[in-house]
Structures are given as structure tokens and as C-alpha cells.
């Protein structure tokens, strides 16, 4: 019969010496964080602190962006370790994360979702479609980007953006919320 030591020790050793599954945190692009900070100053918005609740809306994507948003939450990218969390209701959210070229059939649903968000809130457009319609630009069935319906604070480009790019963008948003650094004299 195997004793408890035989089972426990190898497991402990593995835990001590193996690498964690999670990737190291990506660096935040300084330009993006600065631009966001300026935007925050201009809007004189209340800071939300180092944790953001995110509400996602698909406004016409091909579901490629959704796959990568899901991947950003897997154990390797682990978005939740940064205090970023997806929530079920816009009423609980700080960030509205929108994908797709904004179809005419989704416009009202998006506007109603945005109207449910408590202030202050941020709008993040994810993917090339959300920027300006992407490949679907010019179709009579799409509006051509999230900006046609809502003021966009941050754009994460890509077709689709990788989980790393998504994390970089969202971390920049967290960075911009941090207390401003004292300016050197």
C-alpha cells in the first residue's frame, strides 16, 4: 500500500519546481496609457481604482473577437488576476467592451445597454470592425464602427486582436486610473 508521503512529496516537488501556466503580465504601452490619462483629465471623471468590471456586447462581430476575449480569460492569460472581470449586467459594469462593425439590427440594443451603465464608464472598441466597420465598411446593413453610436475611449485594433493585445489595452485603462505621478521640477 502506498503511504501518503509517496503521493504528497512528488506533488509538492512538482509544485515547487514547475513553471506556472500563467504568462507574465504584458507591459503597458506608455503612449496608450498617457493618452487615456489625458482623456480622463479632460473629462474630469472620477477614478475607478485598480479594478474594472467589464460588460461585453457583440455588435455584429464574426465571433473571432469573442474567441480571443474568451482566450484572454483562460488560465494562461488569466485576465482576472489584474482585477479585470466580466460581469453579467451593464448595471454592474465600469467598461463597455464592444466588438463588431455595429449592425443596424444591433444599434438599439447597444445604445440601451450603454444607457444602463452607471457613470463614470469607459467604452472600449475591440477589433478592426469596431474601429470603422473593417471589411464590412460600406455595407448598407452596418453603421461602420462603434463610434457612430457611442463615444469611444479606447480602441484595441486587430482582426481579431490577440489576447495579449486585449490585455495590454485593458491594463492601459487601469494604468490611466492610477494616481498621477508627481511631475519632476
Amino acid at each position: 500500500m502506498r503511504g501518503w508521503r509517496d503521493m504528497l512529496w512528488p506533488q509538492l516537488a512538482r509544485g515547487l519546481f514547475s513553471r506556472p501556466l500563467t504568462d507574465p503580465a504584458p507591459a503597458v504601452p506608455e503612449v496608450v496609457a498617457e493618452a487615456l490619462a489625458v482623456r480622463l483629465e479632460e473629462a474630469a471623471r472620477v477614478r475607478l481604482g485598480r479594478s474594472l468590471a467589464i460588460r461585453h456586447v457583440d455588435a455584429g462581430s464574426c465571433n473571432g473577437c469573442e474567441l480571443e476575449i474568451h482566450a484572454a480569460g483562460n488560465v494562461v492569460h488569466d485576465l482576472e488576476r489584474f482585477g479585470l472581470r466580466f460581469v453579467a449586467s451593464p448595471r454592474h459594469a465600469d467598461v463597455l467592451l464592444v466588438t463588431g462593425p455595429l449592425t443596424r439590427n444591433m444599434r438599439e440594443a447597444l445604445e440601451r445597454t450603454a444607457a444602463c451603465m452607471p457613470e463614470p464608464c469607459w467604452v472600449v472598441a475591440v477589433g478592426d470592425c469596431a474601429a470603422d466597420g473593417g471589411v464590412f465598411k460600406g455595407s448598407p446593413a452596418v453603421e461602420g464602427g462603434i463610434g457612430t453610436a457611442l463615444p469611444v475611449d479606447l480602441l484595441i485594433p486587430g482582426c481579431p486582436p490577440t489576447p495579449r493585445q486585449l490585455l495590454e489595452g485593458l491594463l492601459a485603462l487601469l494604468e490611466a486610473q492610477a494616481e498621477p505621478k508627481p511631475k519632476p521640477d
Binding site: G64, C65, E66, L67, T103, V135, G138, S139, A141
Partner: peptide
């Protein structure tokens, strides 16, 4: 999520229309 896929494909050369086929369902 109707984007007018078919309308966008029509009148284009196949290589250009392939970008829409690639984005029918990601």
C-alpha cells in the same frame, strides 16, 4: 449580426471576396 455579407461579395474578384468568406463565422 446581419452584415450584408452576400451583397459585399458580389461584383468582386474571388480573392477579394474570400475575405468575407473568412469572416462568415470566425
Amino acid at each position: 449580426v446581419h452584415k450584408g455579407q452576400i451583397g459585399l461579395m458580389l461584383g468582386r474578384p474571388p480573392r477579394a471576396a474570400a475575405r468575407f468568406a473568412a469572416r462568415l463565422s470566425g
